[in-house]
Each structure stands twice: as structure tokens, then as C-alpha cells.
Nucleic acid binder design. Sequence first.
DNA 1: ATACGTCGTTCCAACCGTCGGAACGACAGG
DNA 2: CCTGTCGTTCCGACGGTTGGAACGACGTAT
Lengths: 255, 255
Amino acid sequence: MSRAAGETGVQSALSTLRILEEVARRQPVGVSELARVAEMPKSSVQRYLATLQQAGWLRIVDPERARWGLTAKPIGIGLRAAGEGGLREAALPAMRALSRETDETVHLAMRDENSLVIVARRDGTQTVRTYVELGTVAPIHGTASGLSILAKLPDAEVEAVIAAGLASHTDSTIVDADALRAEVAATRDRGYAVNAASWWRPHVAAIGAAITDSIGRPLAAFALSIPTVRFDSADAPRLGALAVAAADQVSDLLD
Amino acid sequence: MSRAAGETGVQSALSTLRILEEVARRQPVGVSELARVAEMPKSSVQRYLATLQQAGWLRIVDPERARWGLTAKPIGIGLRAAGEGGLREAALPAMRALSRETDETVHLAMRDENSLVIVARRDGTQTVRTYVELGTVAPIHGTASGLSILAKLPDAEVEAVIAAGLASHTDSTIVDADALRAEVAATRDRGYAVNAASWWRPHVAAIGAAITDSIGRPLAAFALSIPTVRFDSADAPRLGALAVAAADQVSDLLD
DNA sequence: ATACGTCGTTCCAACCGTCGGAACGACAGG
DNA sequence: CCTGTCGTTCCGACGGTTGGAACGACGTAT
């Protein structure tokens, strides 16, 4: 079982965790489908499922069809990952208000090193909306949320993100270091980030505003996520000001 | 490596998951402490940590001291376990209101088969309060929340819980099948559950009210969690009515 | 200053747990 | 009736995993 260099992990545990993630994403799901998407032998998947059941993470949610799903155990783990402090909960009211003021979809993304995790969503009433599954990991250099966070980080950390590599997601993703530095500078000037060019997902534009802790370090960000067909650059200043106000309001709640 | 009969899981994966849980509970934490609490060789723990890092679940949060903690990945998994429907979020406002009305700690517990998981808390202003860590698993037959849920289940499912075994947690836990059936009946009469005898945790009394979906199946419950030193049975009807009202309000939100 | 305990980290050979192909009965659809 | 797919079970060979031992660094008590 040869893999890329530098990997020393326990193979069977990695495979088991992989199955756990796939079940989380596709539940309720059966053995064969899992084996197909994970490209593993069916009998191995079966064994991993039994292991995860024994550990209390999974259970058969539909006994008749042998479909697997998550137990409640991951809820507890997830809560601990989010921190009991409850940034998420603190942000929900402001998120709702922002969504109402703008009638657009608002996402809350939490920073995790050099990436973001979408942890909450509030929809507007538009007939055409953007959609991202909660829990999705987003690139920090390829989203308005991420740019708004980068703009509040010291240059050294921005450079660290650049050094880690700027992966491309669409043909307009910012992959050039200087271009990213320029975008960070522009975001610092504006106070909010604008992604009008579908950096990450096709046909999705966004406006981002960062949420900071008491000493000004960015922890998360709001994003107004707007289909490009409806996005008008002329609206950006108004939407940006609303997003910044909402983010600042949450920042103030965090002591 | 001999274990109890009937277990067929992948050992290394079980050990790895065990370490994941311990890290979640104790983060930030080092190798030696983990090896001690999990009773595993230090070198094995080290390997499991590397594996979990490779899988994206853990990272070193304090590089100077080599302390490990969770990444944001579990947030996404946890959200999927809770269901995007967002029972938790739907319940938060009512929980806050209930806490204010009663000035007591309110817990939200979600059902997971024959157990409960505490997924949210709202404190009152009392100087003496109960405390349960979020993510804690509680017995369905040993809590007011659990009893309120059992009371809304058909008898067949109550019997299934009894058949699964009534583990004892304090010397007043209900472990007798008939006693539990009687308590379920009493709860059905009242509409809310009363645990005045510290069934689960010492010195903690509680009043529980179930939250149901559109067809009346109980999904979760509110509990007013009160130190026994302050608990007065005469207050139970008033508190019970408030808890039921709050739970019903959330139930109605769930279509 | 010295000795001691604990920390995180690395290495490696023997062992035994894991792997996955193969085969099974059940089921649904053509 | 046949075919494809489902979930499940079995077992021998293989190699991934195990964990004791040893390392240097650090902090503390002697």
C-alpha cells in the first residue's frame, strides 16, 4: 500500500475515519455505495462500519435496508471543537438580522488555520439562492470571508498562507501571491472583502466581514453569498457596510 | 489482545477513536497524559495522534509544548449528526425564555436511541447551579428529560429500553422495571417528568418536558436542572407547566 | 552544580491483527 | 426465469501494527 512520502499514519484508522466522513456526508447510506465512493473493498467497509458502531459513532438507522447514519456522539465532539464559548450562538441573532436587512443568504465561517468551515447559514427570500452544505471546508484565500479574515491578520500570517500554497478552484481563483497581497490591501482599505469573480464556486459572488475577539484577532466571518447573476457592484458599499456592522456587533459581544 | 466476546472491530481504529475522544475532552493535552488516561503505550498514542492529524481531525495547538487539540472538522460532522433541520437552533430562544422565567439552568437533551446527549445549556442567575458538560451522554431512564421522552413513546419502545437494561448511577436510580413503568405512567398523567431523588447525578433534581415532531414522536427534551437543596416539590407544577409550554412551543416550530 | 523525574520523539523486529477475494442467500426488475 | 445488486460471512496469507527501549531536552528538587 504505497502512498505519498512522509505519511506514517495507521492505515486502518485512516480508512475507518474516511468511512466515518462519508457516512456523515451521505447518511443514510449502505455498504455498497460507501465501498464505491471510497474505492475500498466491500468487506473492508463492512468491517469499518462495525468498528465505528462498536465505538458508538455510527448505527444502523434503517434496519430494513441496512442503512447507516451517525449517532449523537459527534455532536458532543463538534461542540468541543467549536468551543463552548459559543461564537456560533452569539452570532446567530446578528446573522438573522443581516439576512433580513439584505434579503440575501448569510454564511458564518469559522477560521481553522488556513481554511474555513461553514458552520451556519441564514437564507433570504430570493427565489435563486446559493447553497453550501454546512460543515464544508472553504479556502481562506478563495472566499470573501477568508479575505476579510486575512485582512485583519498581520502580514507575517498572510505570507504564511501564501507559502502554504494558493490552490485553484475556478479559473478566477487568486493564485498569484502579489495579486493576493493586493486584494488583502484593498480589503483593508474597504473594511470588507468583495468576491465578484467566483473565486471559489462558480456563479457565486460574496461580500465578507470579519468577526474579531477582544484583542482584534479574527476568528470568523460573515459572508453575504449572492448569485453572480444578481450581484451588482454598485450595491457592494451598502451591503459591505451592513455586513461590517453585523460582524462588529458580534465582535463586541465576545468581551 | 483479548476483549469481551462478540467484538470484531478493528483494534487500531478503536484505539485511535478513543484517543480522539480523549483529546476532545481534555484539549489542549500532551502525549503522556493521554497515554496515562487511556492506558496505552506512549509510542502508540503518538502514532494515533499523527494518524488523526493526517486525517485532519487534530492538530498541535501549542507548538512549544506539543499540546494537541481539535481542528474544525468535527464541527461539520457534529452539525450533520444534529441534523441540518436545526432542532437545536429552533429550541434556543424558547430555552432562553424558560431560563428567564424560572431563573434556573435549562438543558436541551437530544435522544439517541436509548440515551440522551446534552447539546445546549442556558443558565439562570442563581449562585448555586448544576453543571453538566455539553456533549455528555445521559441515561434515558435516569433523567427527567429521558422520562419525559419515554412517556411519549409507545409501550413497546419503553419495554425495549427496559430490556436493554437499567443501569444504576446513584442509589436512587430507578432500576426496577415495574418502578420505571409506574414512573412513566405518572409522567404521562402530569405531562412532565419529575426527578426529585437524584436518579443520575447526586444532589441534582430536575423537571423534564419533551419536544416532539409533527407526528408526536419525541426527539428531545428540556430539563430544568435544580440543585436538590433548592428544589421544592411544591414548585413542581408551576415549573412543569412552564417547561411543557416551552417544549410545546418548539414542537410547533418543527412543522 | 548535580541528580532525578518527566516530557516528546524516534526506531525496529517480531507478532498477530488485518485484508479482500470469493461465495452465500435475498431481493427487485427485466 | 434470469440477471444485477444488495448485505453478509468466511478464512488464509500477508504485512501493517505494536510497544519496549533509548534518546535529548527540560524543569525541579537535592
